[in-house]
C-alpha cells in the first residue's frame, strides 16, 4: 500500500507499507513517538491503532510544550 505522509512543516513523503499495517506501525518505523503527535488520516483525527488505508494521506500534528 502507498501512504502519503505530511509533516508539520508542510513537507510530504510517500511510504510503502504492508497490507493491514496500522498508523502506529508506520510511526514506529519512522521513529515518531505516538505520545508526541496527533494523527489525521484523510483529514480526520484518528487513533493510531487504526489501520492505514491504501493511498491515504496522513498528517502529523506535533505539539510543543507551552510555558
Amino acid at each position: 500500500m502507498q501512504i502519503k505522509l505530511k509533516f508539520s512543516n508542510g513537507k510530504s513523503k510517500v511510504f510503502h507499507v504492508k497490507k493491514d499495517s496500522t498508523i502506529e506501525d508506520l510511526l514506529k518505523e519512522i521513529g515518531v513517538n505516538i505520545e508526541t503527535v496527533i494523527v489525521k488520516m484523510n483529514g480526520k483525527i484518528v487513533p493510531e491503532v487504526e489501520k492505514l488505508e491504501d493511498n491515504c494521506t496522513l498528517e502529523l500534528i506535533e505539539f510543543v510544550s507551552s510555558g
Binding site: 505520545e35 508526541t36 496527533i38 483525527i45 505539539f63 507551552s66
Partner: peptide, 19 residues
C-alpha cells in the same frame, strides 16, 4: 496528559499559538 489537552483544543476549535 499533554496529548489529550492538545486533542481537546483541536476538536473543540480552540485556536492556539503553535510556534
Amino acid at each position: 496528559p499533554e496529548k489529550e489537552t492538545t486533542l481537546y483544543c483541536l476538536l473543540n476549535g480552540i485556536q492556539v499559538h503553535r510556534s
